[in-house]
Design a protein around this nucleic acid. Sequence first.
DNA 1: CCAAACATACCAACCAGTTGGTATGAACCG
DNA 2: CGGTTCATACCAACTGGTTGGTATGTTTGG
Lengths: 215, 215
Amino acid sequence: MTPPKTASSRTEATRARLLEAARDVIRAKGYAATTVDDICAAAGVTKGAFFHHFPSKERLGLDAIEAFNDMASRLFAAPFAALPDPRDRLLGYLDVRIALLNREIPLFTCLLGTLVQEIHATHPALRDACEAGMASHIAALTRDIAAAKALHAPDAAWSAESLGYFMQSVLQGAFIFAKAKQDAAVVAESLTHLKLYLVSLFGAPAPETKDTPRP
Amino acid sequence: MTPPKTASSRTEATRARLLEAARDVIRAKGYAATTVDDICAAAGVTKGAFFHHFPSKERLGLDAIEAFNDMASRLFAAPFAALPDPRDRLLGYLDVRIALLNREIPLFTCLLGTLVQEIHATHPALRDACEAGMASHIAALTRDIAAAKALHAPDAAWSAESLGYFMQSVLQGAFIFAKAKQDAAVVAESLTHLKLYLVSLFGAPAPETKDTPRP
DNA sequence: CCAAACATACCAACCAGTTGGTATGAACCG
DNA sequence: CGGTTCATACCAACTGGTTGGTATGTTTGG
Protein backbone atom coordinates (compact mmCIF):
# COMPACT_ATOMS: atom_id res chain seq x y z
CA MET A 1 0.00 0.00 0.00
CA THR A 2 2.59 2.54 1.12
CA PRO A 3 5.88 0.67 1.01
CA PRO A 4 8.35 3.53 0.64
CA LYS A 5 7.78 5.73 3.62
CA THR A 6 10.25 8.27 4.82
CA ALA A 7 10.59 8.97 8.48
CA SER A 8 8.91 12.33 8.29
CA SER A 9 5.91 11.10 6.33
CA ARG A 10 5.57 8.26 8.80
CA THR A 11 5.42 10.57 11.76
CA GLU A 12 2.95 12.81 9.99
CA ALA A 13 0.77 9.79 9.26
CA THR A 14 0.75 8.80 12.92
CA ARG A 15 -0.12 12.31 13.95
CA ALA A 16 -2.91 12.40 11.39
CA ARG A 17 -4.26 9.06 12.63
CA LEU A 18 -4.37 10.41 16.18
CA LEU A 19 -6.19 13.53 15.01
CA GLU A 20 -8.72 11.50 13.04
CA ALA A 21 -9.25 9.18 15.97
CA ALA A 22 -9.79 12.16 18.25
CA ARG A 23 -12.27 13.68 15.81
CA ASP A 24 -14.37 10.54 15.59
CA VAL A 25 -14.15 9.30 19.17
CA ILE A 26 -14.87 12.71 20.66
CA ARG A 27 -17.84 13.19 18.37
CA ALA A 28 -19.18 9.83 19.53
CA LYS A 29 -18.44 9.91 23.26
CA GLY A 30 -17.81 13.55 24.09
CA TYR A 31 -14.60 15.13 25.29
CA ALA A 32 -14.55 14.23 28.97
CA ALA A 33 -15.60 10.62 28.44
CA THR A 34 -12.95 10.12 25.76
CA THR A 35 -9.76 8.86 27.37
CA VAL A 36 -6.32 9.22 25.89
CA ASP A 37 -6.22 5.42 25.77
CA ASP A 38 -9.44 5.41 23.74
CA ILE A 39 -7.84 7.64 21.15
CA CYS A 40 -4.64 5.60 21.13
CA ALA A 41 -6.58 2.39 20.64
CA ALA A 42 -8.56 3.92 17.76
CA ALA A 43 -5.35 5.17 16.18
CA GLY A 44 -3.48 1.92 16.80
CA VAL A 45 -0.65 3.42 18.85
CA THR A 46 0.29 3.49 22.51
CA LYS A 47 0.19 6.27 25.01
CA GLY A 48 3.89 6.86 24.58
CA ALA A 49 3.35 7.78 20.96
CA PHE A 50 0.46 10.01 21.90
CA PHE A 51 2.46 12.12 24.31
CA HIS A 52 5.32 12.20 21.86
CA HIS A 53 3.08 14.04 19.40
CA PHE A 54 0.89 16.04 21.79
CA PRO A 55 1.87 17.51 25.14
CA SER A 56 -1.63 17.11 26.60
CA LYS A 57 -5.13 15.95 25.87
CA GLU A 58 -6.30 19.54 25.61
CA ARG A 59 -3.66 20.34 23.03
CA LEU A 60 -4.82 17.38 20.97
CA GLY A 61 -8.29 18.86 21.17
CA LEU A 62 -7.04 22.20 19.90
CA ASP A 63 -5.22 20.58 17.00
CA ALA A 64 -8.24 18.39 16.21
CA ILE A 65 -10.37 21.52 16.02
CA GLU A 66 -7.90 23.06 13.60
CA ALA A 67 -7.84 19.94 11.45
CA PHE A 68 -11.63 19.85 11.45
CA ASN A 69 -11.78 23.45 10.31
CA ASP A 70 -9.41 22.71 7.46
CA MET A 71 -11.55 19.78 6.38
CA ALA A 72 -14.70 21.89 6.54
CA SER A 73 -13.17 24.67 4.46
CA ARG A 74 -12.15 22.20 1.80
CA LEU A 75 -15.55 20.49 1.85
CA PHE A 76 -17.53 23.68 1.43
CA ALA A 77 -15.33 25.25 -1.19
CA ALA A 78 -17.55 23.00 -3.28
CA PRO A 79 -19.10 23.09 -6.75
CA PHE A 80 -22.00 25.32 -5.74
CA ALA A 81 -19.49 28.07 -5.04
CA ALA A 82 -19.44 28.73 -8.80
CA LEU A 83 -23.15 29.50 -9.09
CA PRO A 84 -23.72 33.10 -10.16
CA ASP A 85 -26.62 33.92 -7.83
CA PRO A 86 -25.56 33.98 -4.14
CA ARG A 87 -29.03 32.73 -3.18
CA ASP A 88 -28.41 29.60 -5.24
CA ARG A 89 -25.03 29.17 -3.55
CA LEU A 90 -26.76 29.18 -0.18
CA LEU A 91 -29.35 26.64 -1.29
CA GLY A 92 -26.57 24.56 -2.84
CA TYR A 93 -24.72 24.64 0.46
CA LEU A 94 -27.77 23.22 2.22
CA ASP A 95 -28.16 20.55 -0.46
CA VAL A 96 -24.58 19.47 0.15
CA ARG A 97 -25.24 19.26 3.87
CA ILE A 98 -28.32 17.15 3.22
CA ALA A 99 -26.34 14.88 0.93
CA LEU A 100 -23.81 14.25 3.70
CA LEU A 101 -26.41 12.69 6.00
CA ASN A 102 -26.12 9.15 4.60
CA ARG A 103 -23.52 8.20 7.20
CA GLU A 104 -23.18 7.20 10.80
CA ILE A 105 -24.09 9.95 13.23
CA PRO A 106 -20.54 10.58 14.48
CA LEU A 107 -19.47 11.13 10.88
CA PHE A 108 -21.77 13.93 9.78
CA THR A 109 -22.07 15.87 13.04
CA CYS A 110 -19.88 18.83 13.90
CA LEU A 111 -16.90 18.35 16.19
CA LEU A 112 -16.89 22.01 17.19
CA GLY A 113 -20.54 22.14 18.15
CA THR A 114 -20.27 18.91 20.10
CA LEU A 115 -17.17 20.10 21.90
CA VAL A 116 -18.18 23.63 22.73
CA GLN A 117 -21.50 22.59 24.18
CA GLU A 118 -19.74 20.30 26.61
CA ILE A 119 -16.64 22.25 27.59
CA HIS A 120 -17.65 25.90 27.20
CA ALA A 121 -17.40 26.58 30.93
CA THR A 122 -14.53 24.27 31.82
CA HIS A 123 -11.96 24.66 29.00
CA PRO A 124 -11.80 28.28 27.81
CA ALA A 125 -9.03 27.57 25.31
CA LEU A 126 -11.06 24.88 23.59
CA ARG A 127 -14.16 27.05 23.72
CA ASP A 128 -12.41 29.98 22.07
CA ALA A 129 -10.99 27.72 19.36
CA CYS A 130 -14.45 26.35 18.63
CA GLU A 131 -15.94 29.81 18.61
CA ALA A 132 -13.32 31.07 16.20
CA GLY A 133 -13.78 28.11 13.87
CA MET A 134 -17.55 28.40 13.78
CA ALA A 135 -17.36 32.18 13.38
CA SER A 136 -15.07 31.76 10.41
CA HIS A 137 -17.41 29.27 8.74
CA ILE A 138 -20.33 31.59 9.38
CA ALA A 139 -18.38 34.54 8.01
CA ALA A 140 -18.01 32.68 4.72
CA LEU A 141 -21.75 32.02 4.68
CA THR A 142 -22.44 35.61 5.62
CA ARG A 143 -20.68 36.88 2.52
CA ASP A 144 -23.12 34.98 0.30
CA ILE A 145 -26.02 36.02 2.50
CA ALA A 146 -25.08 39.68 2.25
CA ALA A 147 -24.82 39.39 -1.52
CA ALA A 148 -28.16 37.59 -1.75
CA LYS A 149 -29.75 40.17 0.48
CA ALA A 150 -28.47 43.06 -1.62
CA LEU A 151 -29.88 41.33 -4.67
CA HIS A 152 -33.20 39.95 -3.46
CA ALA A 153 -34.15 41.57 -0.13
CA PRO A 154 -32.27 44.86 0.16
CA ASP A 155 -34.73 46.41 2.63
CA ALA A 156 -35.03 43.53 5.08
CA ALA A 157 -34.56 44.42 8.74
CA TRP A 158 -32.35 41.49 9.75
CA SER A 159 -28.57 41.45 9.36
CA ALA A 160 -26.74 39.04 7.08
CA GLU A 161 -24.68 37.76 9.98
CA SER A 162 -27.74 36.97 12.09
CA LEU A 163 -29.06 34.83 9.27
CA GLY A 164 -25.72 33.02 9.11
CA TYR A 165 -25.98 32.17 12.79
CA PHE A 166 -29.58 31.16 12.30
CA MET A 167 -28.63 28.73 9.53
CA GLN A 168 -25.92 27.16 11.65
CA SER A 169 -28.20 27.01 14.67
CA VAL A 170 -30.66 24.95 12.68
CA LEU A 171 -27.87 22.56 11.73
CA GLN A 172 -26.41 22.26 15.20
CA GLY A 173 -29.80 21.86 16.82
CA ALA A 174 -30.90 19.27 14.29
CA PHE A 175 -27.76 17.27 15.07
CA ILE A 176 -28.87 17.12 18.70
CA PHE A 177 -32.19 15.60 17.68
CA ALA A 178 -30.46 13.18 15.34
CA LYS A 179 -28.41 11.98 18.29
CA ALA A 180 -31.46 11.75 20.52
CA LYS A 181 -33.51 9.81 17.96
CA GLN A 182 -30.54 7.97 16.47
CA ASP A 183 -31.86 8.97 13.09
CA ALA A 184 -30.66 11.59 10.63
CA ALA A 185 -34.05 12.10 8.97
CA VAL A 186 -34.90 14.90 11.38
CA VAL A 187 -31.87 16.84 10.12
CA ALA A 188 -33.01 16.61 6.51
CA GLU A 189 -36.49 17.80 7.43
CA SER A 190 -35.18 20.75 9.39
CA LEU A 191 -32.89 21.71 6.53
CA THR A 192 -35.88 21.56 4.23
CA HIS A 193 -37.66 24.07 6.45
CA LEU A 194 -34.53 26.19 6.40
CA LYS A 195 -34.53 26.15 2.60
CA LEU A 196 -38.18 27.18 2.66
CA TYR A 197 -37.26 30.11 4.87
CA LEU A 198 -34.48 31.17 2.53
CA VAL A 199 -36.89 30.96 -0.39
CA SER A 200 -39.35 33.11 1.53
CA LEU A 201 -36.61 35.69 2.02
CA PHE A 202 -34.87 35.58 -1.35
CA GLY A 203 -37.37 33.97 -3.71
CA ALA A 204 -37.17 30.58 -5.40
CA PRO A 205 -34.26 29.70 -7.66
CA ALA A 206 -34.66 28.93 -11.31
CA PRO A 207 -35.62 25.29 -11.98
CA GLU A 208 -32.73 22.88 -12.46
CA THR A 209 -33.60 22.04 -16.07
CA LYS A 210 -31.11 24.07 -18.04
CA ASP A 211 -33.10 23.73 -21.27
CA THR A 212 -35.78 26.18 -20.18
CA PRO A 213 -34.19 29.59 -20.46
CA ARG A 214 -36.26 32.45 -19.21
CA PRO A 215 -37.00 35.34 -21.58
CA MET B 1 -38.04 30.84 56.48
CA THR B 2 -39.32 27.30 56.90
CA PRO B 3 -39.04 26.59 60.64
CA PRO B 4 -41.63 23.87 61.03
CA LYS B 5 -40.39 21.10 58.84
CA THR B 6 -41.56 17.54 59.11
CA ALA B 7 -39.15 14.72 58.48
CA SER B 8 -40.64 13.84 55.14
CA SER B 9 -40.61 17.43 53.89
CA ARG B 10 -37.01 17.73 55.05
CA THR B 11 -35.90 14.69 53.13
CA GLU B 12 -37.86 15.84 50.11
CA ALA B 13 -36.12 19.19 50.33
CA THR B 14 -32.69 17.54 50.35
CA ARG B 15 -33.65 15.43 47.37
CA ALA B 16 -34.91 18.51 45.57
CA ARG B 17 -31.69 20.38 46.34
CA LEU B 18 -29.67 17.54 44.88
CA LEU B 19 -31.83 17.53 41.76
CA GLU B 20 -31.50 21.29 41.34
CA ALA B 21 -27.75 21.08 41.87
CA ALA B 22 -27.53 18.34 39.25
CA ARG B 23 -29.59 20.38 36.82
CA ASP B 24 -27.40 23.45 37.14
CA VAL B 25 -23.97 21.85 37.46
CA ILE B 26 -24.56 19.44 34.58
CA ARG B 27 -25.78 22.27 32.37
CA ALA B 28 -22.60 24.18 33.19
CA LYS B 29 -19.97 21.43 33.09
CA GLY B 30 -21.56 18.57 31.21
CA TYR B 31 -22.41 15.13 32.55
CA ALA B 32 -19.06 13.36 32.55
CA ALA B 33 -17.14 16.28 34.01
CA THR B 34 -19.68 16.70 36.80
CA THR B 35 -18.62 14.60 39.77
CA VAL B 36 -20.89 13.36 42.49
CA ASP B 37 -18.88 15.49 44.89
CA ASP B 38 -19.55 18.56 42.73
CA ILE B 39 -23.26 17.99 43.04
CA CYS B 40 -23.02 17.31 46.76
CA ALA B 41 -21.05 20.52 47.29
CA ALA B 42 -23.57 22.54 45.28
CA ALA B 43 -26.42 21.01 47.27
CA GLY B 44 -24.62 21.41 50.59
CA VAL B 45 -24.67 17.75 51.55
CA THR B 46 -22.16 14.93 51.67
CA LYS B 47 -21.80 11.85 49.56
CA GLY B 48 -23.56 9.78 52.18
CA ALA B 49 -26.71 11.83 51.70
CA PHE B 50 -26.37 11.57 47.95
CA PHE B 51 -26.28 7.79 47.88
CA HIS B 52 -29.03 7.67 50.43
CA HIS B 53 -31.32 9.36 47.92
CA PHE B 54 -29.96 8.02 44.62
CA PRO B 55 -28.47 4.60 43.97
CA SER B 56 -26.13 5.90 41.25
CA LYS B 57 -25.07 8.96 39.33
CA GLU B 58 -26.97 7.78 36.28
CA ARG B 59 -30.18 7.41 38.27
CA LEU B 60 -29.77 10.98 39.52
CA GLY B 61 -29.47 12.00 35.88
CA LEU B 62 -32.70 10.21 35.02
CA ASP B 63 -34.53 11.85 37.90
CA ALA B 64 -33.08 15.25 37.02
CA ILE B 65 -34.40 14.83 33.49
CA GLU B 66 -37.83 14.05 34.87
CA ALA B 67 -37.75 17.08 37.18
CA PHE B 68 -36.65 19.29 34.29
CA ASN B 69 -39.53 18.05 32.18
CA ASP B 70 -41.98 18.86 34.94
CA MET B 71 -40.57 22.37 35.27
CA ALA B 72 -40.75 22.89 31.50
CA SER B 73 -44.36 21.74 31.33
CA ARG B 74 -45.33 24.15 34.07
CA LEU B 75 -43.37 27.00 32.50
CA PHE B 76 -44.94 26.65 29.09
CA ALA B 77 -48.47 26.10 30.25
CA ALA B 78 -48.19 29.89 30.33
CA PRO B 79 -50.50 32.83 29.64
CA PHE B 80 -50.16 32.63 25.88
CA ALA B 81 -51.88 29.24 26.04
CA ALA B 82 -55.16 31.12 26.31
CA LEU B 83 -54.81 32.98 23.00
CA PRO B 84 -57.51 31.98 20.55
CA ASP B 85 -55.38 31.74 17.41
CA PRO B 86 -52.87 28.86 17.56
CA ARG B 87 -50.46 30.95 15.47
CA ASP B 88 -50.44 33.57 18.20
CA ARG B 89 -49.83 30.88 20.81
CA LEU B 90 -46.73 29.79 18.88
CA LEU B 91 -45.43 33.34 18.61
CA GLY B 92 -46.22 33.86 22.29
CA TYR B 93 -44.23 30.75 23.12
CA LEU B 94 -41.23 32.21 21.33
CA ASP B 95 -41.67 35.54 23.10
CA VAL B 96 -41.59 33.74 26.43
CA ARG B 97 -38.41 31.95 25.43
CA ILE B 98 -36.84 35.25 24.43
CA ALA B 99 -37.89 36.79 27.73
CA LEU B 100 -36.08 34.00 29.60
CA LEU B 101 -32.70 34.93 28.15
CA ASN B 102 -31.86 37.58 30.76
CA ARG B 103 -30.02 35.06 32.91
CA GLU B 104 -26.75 33.23 33.18
CA ILE B 105 -26.17 30.75 30.39
CA PRO B 106 -26.55 27.62 32.53
CA LEU B 107 -29.95 28.90 33.64
CA PHE B 108 -31.75 29.32 30.33
CA THR B 109 -30.25 26.43 28.38
CA CYS B 110 -31.85 23.01 28.11
CA LEU B 111 -30.64 20.20 30.34
CA LEU B 112 -31.96 17.56 27.96
CA GLY B 113 -30.26 18.97 24.89
CA THR B 114 -26.99 19.41 26.73
CA LEU B 115 -27.14 15.90 28.12
CA VAL B 116 -28.23 14.01 25.05
CA GLN B 117 -25.57 15.59 22.86
CA GLU B 118 -22.88 14.36 25.20
CA ILE B 119 -24.10 10.92 26.27
CA HIS B 120 -26.17 9.73 23.31
CA ALA B 121 -23.74 6.94 22.47
CA THR B 122 -22.55 6.04 25.96
CA HIS B 123 -25.66 6.09 28.19
CA PRO B 124 -28.68 4.71 26.31
CA ALA B 125 -30.99 5.05 29.30
CA LEU B 126 -30.24 8.75 29.66
CA ARG B 127 -30.50 9.23 25.92
CA ASP B 128 -33.92 7.62 25.77
CA ALA B 129 -35.14 9.71 28.69
CA CYS B 130 -33.96 12.89 26.97
CA GLU B 131 -35.52 11.83 23.70
CA ALA B 132 -38.86 11.12 25.38
CA GLY B 133 -38.84 14.44 27.22
CA MET B 134 -38.02 16.48 24.14
CA ALA B 135 -40.54 14.52 22.05
CA SER B 136 -43.24 15.27 24.59
CA HIS B 137 -42.46 18.99 24.57
CA ILE B 138 -42.48 18.96 20.78
CA ALA B 139 -45.76 17.07 20.74
CA ALA B 140 -47.34 19.88 22.72
CA LEU B 141 -45.96 22.41 20.22
CA THR B 142 -47.07 20.25 17.34
CA ARG B 143 -50.69 20.42 18.46
CA ASP B 144 -50.65 24.21 18.10
CA ILE B 145 -48.74 23.94 14.85
CA ALA B 146 -51.28 21.53 13.40
CA ALA B 147 -54.11 23.85 14.40
CA ALA B 148 -52.33 26.88 12.95
CA LYS B 149 -51.63 25.00 9.76
CA ALA B 150 -55.25 23.94 9.38
CA LEU B 151 -56.24 27.55 9.85
CA HIS B 152 -53.59 29.46 7.89
CA ALA B 153 -51.67 27.08 5.62
CA PRO B 154 -53.81 24.01 5.02
CA ASP B 155 -52.12 23.04 1.76
CA ALA B 156 -48.49 23.32 2.86
CA ALA B 157 -46.30 20.35 2.06
CA TRP B 158 -44.48 20.09 5.40
CA SER B 159 -45.80 18.20 8.41
CA ALA B 160 -46.71 19.90 11.67
CA GLU B 161 -44.30 17.67 13.58
CA SER B 162 -41.38 18.55 11.32
CA LEU B 163 -41.97 22.21 12.08
CA GLY B 164 -42.01 21.42 15.79
CA TYR B 165 -38.60 19.78 15.49
CA PHE B 166 -37.39 22.69 13.39
CA MET B 167 -38.41 25.18 16.07
CA GLN B 168 -36.65 23.22 18.78
CA SER B 169 -33.59 22.74 16.58
CA VAL B 170 -33.29 26.51 16.27
CA LEU B 171 -33.44 26.83 20.04
CA GLN B 172 -30.97 24.05 20.78
CA GLY B 173 -28.55 25.20 18.12
CA ALA B 174 -28.74 28.81 19.26
CA PHE B 175 -27.87 27.65 22.80
CA ILE B 176 -24.67 26.16 21.41
CA PHE B 177 -23.67 29.50 19.93
CA ALA B 178 -24.61 31.29 23.13
CA LYS B 179 -22.21 28.99 24.96
CA ALA B 180 -19.49 29.49 22.37
CA LYS B 181 -19.81 33.28 22.40
CA GLN B 182 -20.75 33.54 26.07
CA ASP B 183 -23.57 35.77 25.00
CA ALA B 184 -27.29 35.15 24.75
CA ALA B 185 -27.94 37.80 22.10
CA VAL B 186 -27.43 35.28 19.31
CA VAL B 187 -30.34 33.25 20.70
CA ALA B 188 -32.69 36.21 20.57
CA GLU B 189 -31.68 36.98 16.99
CA SER B 190 -32.20 33.40 15.87
CA LEU B 191 -35.60 33.31 17.55
CA THR B 192 -36.47 36.50 15.72
CA HIS B 193 -35.68 34.75 12.44
CA LEU B 194 -37.79 31.85 13.58
CA LYS B 195 -40.71 34.18 14.24
CA LEU B 196 -40.22 35.65 10.77
CA TYR B 197 -40.44 32.15 9.33
CA LEU B 198 -43.63 31.41 11.23
CA VAL B 199 -45.11 34.68 9.98
CA SER B 200 -44.14 33.72 6.44
CA LEU B 201 -45.99 30.43 6.92
CA PHE B 202 -49.03 31.56 8.90
CA GLY B 203 -49.24 35.31 8.33
CA ALA B 204 -48.67 38.10 10.83
CA PRO B 205 -50.78 38.36 13.98
CA ALA B 206 -53.04 41.29 14.67
CA PRO B 207 -51.18 44.23 16.21
CA GLU B 208 -51.08 44.36 20.01
CA THR B 209 -53.05 47.59 20.26
CA LYS B 210 -56.55 46.39 20.93
CA ASP B 211 -58.05 49.78 20.08
CA THR B 212 -57.44 49.40 16.35
CA PRO B 213 -60.05 46.93 15.16
CA ARG B 214 -59.72 45.95 11.56
CA PRO B 215 -62.69 46.43 9.24
C1' DC C 1 -35.81 3.94 71.49
C1' DC C 2 -35.95 3.11 66.75
C1' DA C 3 -35.74 4.00 62.04
C1' DA C 4 -34.80 7.19 58.62
C1' DA C 5 -31.50 10.84 57.29
C1' DC C 6 -27.22 12.16 56.99
C1' DA C 7 -21.86 12.21 57.84
C1' DT C 8 -17.10 10.21 57.76
C1' DA C 9 -13.73 7.17 56.28
C1' DC C 10 -12.47 4.31 53.01
C1' DC C 11 -11.69 1.38 48.60
C1' DA C 12 -10.93 -0.39 44.00
C1' DA C 13 -10.86 1.21 39.40
C1' DC C 14 -9.53 4.51 36.33
C1' DC C 15 -7.03 8.29 34.10
C1' DA C 16 -3.70 11.92 32.44
C1' DG C 17 0.74 12.21 32.31
C1' DT C 18 5.86 10.32 33.26
C1' DT C 19 9.78 7.40 32.94
C1' DG C 20 13.12 4.64 31.05
C1' DG C 21 14.04 2.10 27.39
C1' DT C 22 14.06 0.17 22.31
C1' DA C 23 13.73 0.32 17.19
C1' DT C 24 14.70 2.72 13.03
C1' DG C 25 16.56 5.40 9.73
C1' DA C 26 19.34 9.08 8.27
C1' DA C 27 23.79 11.47 8.42
C1' DC C 28 28.40 11.63 8.87
C1' DC C 29 33.05 9.79 8.68
C1' DG C 30 36.79 6.58 7.32
C1' DC D 1 30.84 1.64 0.63
C1' DG D 2 30.36 0.18 5.59
C1' DG D 3 30.20 1.14 10.14
C1' DT D 4 29.49 4.34 14.01
C1' DT D 5 26.62 8.10 15.81
C1' DC D 6 22.64 10.26 16.92
C1' DA D 7 18.01 11.99 16.89
C1' DT D 8 13.37 10.81 16.17
C1' DA D 9 9.42 7.69 16.73
C1' DC D 10 7.50 4.67 19.47
C1' DC D 11 6.53 1.30 23.37
C1' DA D 12 5.50 -0.91 28.16
C1' DA D 13 5.25 -0.16 32.83
C1' DC D 14 4.44 2.90 36.38
C1' DT D 15 2.53 6.98 39.42
C1' DG D 16 -0.12 10.32 41.82
C1' DG D 17 -4.40 11.90 42.02
C1' DT D 18 -9.35 11.43 41.12
C1' DT D 19 -13.95 9.12 40.94
C1' DG D 20 -18.12 6.37 41.66
C1' DG D 21 -19.53 3.72 45.08
C1' DT D 22 -19.49 1.34 49.98
C1' DA D 23 -19.18 0.41 54.91
C1' DT D 24 -19.78 2.12 59.12
C1' DG D 25 -20.76 5.44 62.26
C1' DT D 26 -23.74 9.49 64.26
C1' DT D 27 -27.61 12.56 64.54
C1' DT D 28 -32.49 13.64 64.49
C1' DG D 29 -37.36 13.45 64.61
C1' DG D 30 -41.34 11.00 66.22
